[in-house]
Amino acid sequence: KTVHVNGVQYDFDNPEQAERFAKEMAKKAGLQIQFHGDQIKIE
């Protein structure tokens, strides 16, 4: 899974790890999470 945070890309082999990371980042920055198939976007 790939997580995009403000244009920066983070790759994870483990989907659960990717989602946990995305939730942490979104919570910290007060941003929205969008799921697009294999990609998670935080903007």
Rank of each mutant, 00 (worst) to 15 (best):
K1C: 15
K1W: 15
K1Y: 15
K1D: 03
K1T: 14
K1L: 14
T2W: 03
T2C: 12
T2R: 03
T2V: 08
T2I: 06
V3Q: 02
V3S: 01
V3I: 07
V3K: 00
H4T: 13
H4D: 04
H4I: 15
V5Q: 02
V5H: 08
V5E: 00
V5L: 11
N6L: 12
N6Y: 08
N6W: 08
N6P: 01
N6H: 09
G7C: 10
G7T: 01
G7L: 02
G7E: 01
G7V: 00
V8I: 09
V8F: 05
V8M: 08
V8S: 03
V8H: 07
V8A: 03
Q9F: 05
Q9D: 05
Q9L: 09
Q9H: 06
Y10V: 03
Y10C: 01
Y10I: 03
Y10S: 00
Y10E: 00
Y10K: 01
Y10Q: 01
Y10T: 01
Y10F: 09
D11G: 04
D11I: 14
D11S: 11
F12A: 01
F12N: 00
F12T: 01
F12K: 00
D13I: 06
D13R: 02
D13K: 05
D13S: 07
D13T: 05
N14T: 15
N14S: 14
N14A: 04
N14K: 04
N14V: 04
N14C: 13
N14Y: 06
N14G: 03
P15T: 10
P15L: 11
P15S: 12
E16N: 04
E16D: 08
Q17C: 13
Q17F: 02
A18I: 01
A18V: 01
A18R: 01
A18Y: 03
A18N: 00
A18S: 01
E19H: 10
E19L: 15
E19V: 14
E19F: 13
E19N: 05
R20Q: 14
R20I: 12
R20T: 11
R20G: 04
R20S: 11
F21N: 00
F21I: 03
F21G: 00
F21A: 02
F21D: 03
A22C: 08
A22I: 12
A22P: 00
A22N: 02
A22K: 04
A22L: 12
A22D: 02
K23R: 13
K23P: 00
K23C: 14
K23V: 09
K23W: 10
K23S: 09
K23G: 03
E24S: 02
E24T: 02
M25P: 03
M25I: 13
M25H: 05
M25C: 15
A26L: 08
K27A: 13
K27F: 13
K27Q: 14
K27T: 12
K28R: 08
K28S: 08
K28E: 12
K28L: 14
A29Y: 15
A29S: 10
A29W: 15
G30K: 03
G30C: 12
G30H: 09
G30Q: 09
G30D: 10
G30N: 08
G30L: 05
L31Y: 11
L31Q: 07
L31M: 11
L31F: 10
Q32P: 06
Q32W: 04
Q32E: 11
Q32V: 12
Q32G: 07
Q32I: 12
Q32M: 11
Q32R: 04
I33Y: 06
I33A: 07
I33T: 04
Q34F: 13
Q34H: 11
Q34E: 11
Q34M: 12
Q34V: 14
Q34K: 11
Q34W: 10
F35V: 09
H36R: 08
H36L: 13
H36P: 06
H36A: 11
H36T: 10
G37I: 07
G37W: 07
G37Q: 08
G37L: 06
G37F: 07
G37T: 08
G37E: 08
D38L: 09
D38Q: 10
D38N: 10
D38F: 11
Q39V: 14
Q39C: 15
Q39K: 10
Q39W: 11
I40Y: 06
I40P: 06
I40H: 06
I40T: 05
I40F: 07
I40K: 03
K41F: 15
K41Y: 15
K41T: 12
K41S: 10
I42R: 01
I42Y: 07
I42W: 05
I42A: 06
I42V: 12
I42N: 06
E43H: 10
E43F: 11
E43I: 11
E43A: 07
E43K: 05
E43N: 09
